[in-house]
Design a protein around this nucleic acid. Structure first.
Length: 428
DNA sequence: TCTGGGGTCCTAGGACCC
DNA sequence: TCTGGGGTCCTAGGACCC
């Protein structure tokens, strides 16, 4: 009987690695990828980390530093990252029958049954395969629980002597504990800055301290989440591997504007675009929304300017996935919360009370013919946009001028997703 | 000038009911 | 002076994640 083992494979500074794949000149140079509107740093190359640039820092705050050190900043190209992510995940799926895709650049694999191959060696094979087939660097962490696998991955990333793969299940106890004693408790999956601060007061500073802490006392002070984390650190798997992603409970689409927006019409256009996108996601998971929330807000980072923020939940008479009905609800809500005279910085919508389309409630007033027409129209819309590229067909309400559209001034191309921008090996 | 977007889970407290 | 007790449901907000 083998002990359970879970692997966490995580791409190294994924967005930067994706960009380097198609722009080899970025290799060895300090590179960051910025969030929407070129706002914050969301990915940093090793060279940038070494300069002390923190995750999430606003780009304008480090422009001086960037100039001095020749940091190259790129707008985020999510189409490219999503495509490469899909390729990484398909390759990784070959290494275990049970895979949980956890985020765009991470997945868990259940290694149960692969013990005879030696987990560490298996991890090296995974790492080498992704590097050779896709050109992307990954690290592999292996542990008896998801939390330990994450921790092992952290060690694999930070300590070169592990060559990108750390198998905590095979380390001698003394070595494992000395490693855990050197890692700050805030590195543990599920322990954020607030909790780390409160733990410090109790003299729980390292991962080893937390592993050895009394679970019941922690539960009383911090709740059940931290209690489970401690159990996981002790090798008791509380978080199971979810190979089938459960349907989302809410679908949100929101964006900051490229520049401030004042008039209702621009907000209406933006909200139309967001609802359109959210409805596509909703139909892709075969769901219906029972309610829609719409919200708008001014820029909270400008406290001197008049502030206004409001949201409203609009219930739908009947749960729906029809873009037109969702739009009516959103526009009605927007009308009610809009106040003139403010510089709006962001708007968004959230679809909530989601149910599977198969559970569509029946009412006395069901109009089967109208439902069939709606279904056919939405399916056609989705198909055309899937084939011709999203936004090929869209509602007039999105408008044409788009002053609210976000800034992306440093964007790379669609090397793998757009025939016109496909990567070129040589031009002569 | 310039500060992302999209999620989940848990808890506390109020409303309501018997 | 002195104002029940317990259960359920819902919502808002906090904390965390990538």
């Amino acid at each position: 009987m083998s002990a359970p083992a879970i692997a966490l494979i995580d791409c190294n500074n994924f967005y930067v690695s994706c960009e380097r794949l198609f722009q080899p000149r970025l290799e060895g140079r300090p590179v960051v990828v910025l969030s929407n509107n070129d706002g914050c740093v969301v990915a940093r190359s090793q060279e940038v980390r070494a300069l002390g640039v923190k995750m999430g820092v606003p780009w304008f705050q480090i422009k001086d530093l960037a100039r001095r050190h020749g940091i190259i900043a790129l707008s985020s190209n999510y189409t490219l990252y999503a495509d490469l992510s899909n390729r990484v995940m398909s390759v990784l799926a070959e290494f275990s029958p049970r895979q949980e895709i956890y985020s765009i650049d991470e997945c868990f694999l259940d290694l149960d049954g692969f013990q005879s191959l030696q987990y560490g060696a298996y991890g090296q094979r995974i790492r080498a395969t992704i590097k050779q087939w896709l050109g992307l660097p990954v690290c592999v962490g292996i542990g008896a629980s998801k939390t330990l696998a994450k921790l092992a991955n952290h060690i694999a990333k930070k300590r070169p002597e592990y060559a990108g793969v750390c198998d905590l299940t095979s380390l001698p106890t003394a070595l494992r504990e000395s490693l855990l004693a050197q890692i700050a408790v805030g590195e543990v999956w599920g322990v954020g800055a607030r909790t780390a601060e409160r733990l410090a007061v109790l003299d729980i500073a390292s991962v080893l301290d937390l592993q050895r802490a009394a679970p019941k006392a922690l539960r009383a002070q911090f709740g059940v989440v931290l209690e489970r984390t401690v159990a996981e650190l002790n090798g008791e798997a509380c978080h199971t591997l979810e190979s089938i992603a459960p349907p989302r409970q809410q679908i949100m689409v929101s964006r900051s504007f490229g520049s401030a927006v004042y008039d209702l019409e621009s907000l209406q256009q933006a909200v139309t675009a967001y609802v359109t996108r959210a409805a596509e996601k909703l139909r892709r998971q075969a769901g219906l929304a029972g309610a829609l929330q719409v919200f708008i807000r001014t820029n909270p980072f400008k406290p001197d300017a008049p502030q206004y923020q409001r949201g409203l939940i609009v219930p739908l008479a009947v749960p729906s996935d029809d873009t037109r009905q969702l739009l009516r609800a959103a526009q009605a809500g927007l009308q009610r919360i809009y106040r003139p005279g403010f510089a709006y910085q962001k708007a968004g919508i959230v679809l909530t009370e989601l149910i599977p389309a198969a559970q569509r409630p029946r009412t006395l007033f069901d109009d089967a013919a109208a439902q069939a027409r709606s279904h056919a129209l939405m399916r056609t819309l989705d198909r055309i946009n899937a084939k011709m590229g999203s936004h090929s067909l869209r509602l007039l309400g999105e408008g044409w001028d788009k002053s609210w559209r976000m800034r992306r001034e440093r964007m790379s191309q669609g090397y793998t997703t757009n025939w016109d921008e496909i990567a070129v090996a040589r031009t002569d």
